[in-house]
Simulated assay, not measured.
Amino acid sequence: MNKVLEVDAIHTYYGKSHILKGVSLHVGEGELVALLGRNGAGKSTTLRSIMGLTPPRQGHVRLFGQDVTGASPSRIATMGAGYVPEGRKIFGHLTVHENLLVARETKGQWTLDTVYKLFPRLHERRTSKGGRLSGGEQEMLAIARALLLNPKLLILDEPSQGLAPIIVQDVMRTVARMKSEGISVLLVEQNAFLALQLADRAYVLGEGEILYDGDAAALAADTERMEQLAGVAHAG
């Protein structure tokens, strides 16, 4: 299997704080990989390191076989990595349609028309300001904006955060759809059981180090280990 993303022993700091301590992971072509862990384990920092927002001081990040360690976020995005950050980061003062126009649409199947078909609710609310959308609508908008880059790799940071359970199911169906469309996905998700139902493989982070690297279904079936590694006591 071709690797679209390789993270090799990265060490990332915030000032003097050593956050990631030799993290290695990879995502294969067409794979959905879950990155799990307790709060503060370093999950978001790993994604920020991959996207060039908080470059690692040691180690390497390779995207589609090219070393992008220390590259700008814009270069990494134009290479084919779509990023949906924690908290959505949409423009609250712009309309839904204006938020989508901010994304530099690239050649491929995802266009304004196709993302509106994927998310009919966004089409209905295309003249509404981003700040007036519900949490679920904002998440749809953030994903739609990333899709307009026609990414080969989609990186999602806590897409279900703060959403009602019925909306979470909609968002996760969208994530599964991305995989079925052939997009590789790296998913950071607090709802570990939900993420593992979708994922092929999983990593668990703890205090900046990888504690588990293996089959997603096997981890989901081992509830005791889930509790030990990710602090998850039961499905829900």
Rank of each mutant, 00 (worst) to 15 (best):
L36T: 03
E98I: 00
E31S: 08
L20T: 07
A230P: 03
G65S: 07
V33F: 10
I50A: 00
E31N: 08
L154M: 14
V171F: 11
E31A: 07
R201H: 13
V4W: 04
I166G: 02
G92Y: 05
K129T: 07
R88G: 05
A41G: 08
T127Y: 11
K107L: 10
T46K: 02
R57H: 11
G136C: 05
R145K: 14
I166P: 06
M140L: 04
L118V: 08
V7Y: 02
V185C: 10
K152Y: 08
T54D: 05
N2Q: 13
E98M: 02
G162K: 02
N191D: 11
E6N: 03
G231L: 12
E207H: 13
A144I: 07
P151A: 08
N99Y: 00
E137T: 01
K16G: 10
R225G: 07
R225W: 05
G162C: 08
K107I: 04
E137Y: 02
L229I: 07
G108R: 06
M51V: 03
P165T: 09
G37H: 04
L153V: 13
T46N: 01
L149E: 08
F119T: 03
I155R: 00
T69Y: 04
G136N: 04
H93I: 11
Q66V: 12
S74E: 14
H234T: 12
A217L: 12
K3R: 14
E227H: 13
T127V: 09
V4D: 01
P73F: 00
M51E: 00
G52A: 11
G231Y: 11
S160C: 09
P151V: 03
S160R: 03
T12A: 11
V33E: 11
W110I: 07
K43W: 06
Q197A: 12
Y13P: 10
T174C: 15
N150M: 09
Q228V: 05
P159R: 04
G231T: 10
K3S: 15
D200N: 14
A146Q: 01
L53D: 01
Y14F: 13
V168R: 08
A235K: 11
R75D: 11
A218W: 01
T12Y: 01
T106E: 13
R201E: 03
